[in-house]
Amino acid sequence: MEIYGPTLVYDETCPYIGPLGFDLFCGVSLPLQEALKTLNLKLGKYTDSIDTLLLTNIRSNLLKMTINLNYFYSYYTRITFPNNLNVFKTLLVLKLQGRIVLDVVDSPVCFPSLKILQLICVNFRCEESFTRLLSACPVLEDTLPPNTFQS
């Protein structure tokens, strides 16, 4: 397992989240983590604020990000990748696992440094979303097989 520097794990499945609630706590605390290099999000319920609240509040130059949606409902959480986020410019590794629907069609997202992309149980809104995601990763070197996923 590669170490990329200071790591922070937000685990929504933790039994005590506090009075703010998980989304608000992450939204308030993420901007304070300027030295952060690795972010692991372990989500346990339906959340629609991954891209609108969590991703937009990252202020550091992340190298690795893992989003693991660990819930068993029948619906998927949509991630659209907000436009022009600096966090995507430095990302080397992106791992997404769980009931996620990626929508890259209407978002001009770019991952200019992304070398490793791992998608497990992830759906795409349409075929064009998949094609745009791959074209947004010009230096992509590898996609990891599912058995190497580490959260």
Rank of each mutant, 00 (worst) to 15 (best):
V105P: 00
I3D: 14
P6V: 14
T52A: 07
L133C: 03
K89T: 11
K64C: 07
L62F: 04
V87E: 05
T90R: 04
I67V: 07
L41W: 03
L43N: 07
F111T: 01
S113I: 02
S49C: 11
G5L: 02
K45D: 15
V139A: 02
N61P: 05
T143P: 09
L43K: 05
Y73Q: 15
L41R: 00
L119R: 01
N83P: 10
E34I: 11
S151N: 12
N147G: 01
Y75G: 05
L133E: 03
C137G: 01
S113M: 11
L102C: 01
S129W: 05
T143W: 14
T56Q: 09
T56D: 05
S49R: 05
M65L: 15
L133M: 05
S29N: 14
N70D: 15
Y75L: 08
I100F: 06
L96W: 01
D48L: 06
Y75D: 15
S113W: 10
L144E: 13
P31S: 02
K45L: 14
Y76E: 13
S113N: 15
L69N: 04
Y46I: 10
N147S: 09
C26P: 01
R99F: 11
G5C: 02
V28N: 06
I120L: 09
E128I: 08
S74Q: 12
G27R: 03
L134Q: 12
T38S: 09
P19M: 08
V9K: 11
P146Q: 09
N123S: 11
K95S: 12
T77V: 13
D48G: 13
V122K: 00
T7G: 04
K89A: 10
E2Q: 15
K64A: 08
E128G: 06
N57R: 11
V28Q: 08
Y4V: 07
S107A: 09
V105L: 12
M1W: 13
L85G: 07
A136S: 15
L92H: 14
G5Q: 03
P112T: 08
P82S: 11
P138A: 05
L36I: 06
P145I: 09
L94S: 01
L140W: 07
K37E: 14
K37P: 07
K45I: 12
L96Q: 01
T38R: 08
C14Q: 14
C121V: 13
S113G: 05
V139Q: 02
P145H: 10
D23L: 10
T77Y: 02
N84K: 11
V101M: 08
L20W: 13
G27C: 07
N70R: 10
P15E: 03
L119M: 06
L96V: 01
T131H: 15
L20N: 13
Q150R: 12
N70T: 08
F130E: 13
D48S: 12
F72Y: 12
I50R: 00
R78A: 02
Y16L: 12
G98A: 08
R99Q: 10
G5S: 04
R125T: 13
A35Y: 15
A136V: 07
S107F: 03
S113H: 12
C26Y: 02
C126H: 02
T38K: 05
S60A: 09
L134S: 08
D11K: 05
L24I: 15
L92D: 14
I17Y: 00
Y16T: 10
N61C: 10
S49G: 08
F72P: 00
K64Y: 06
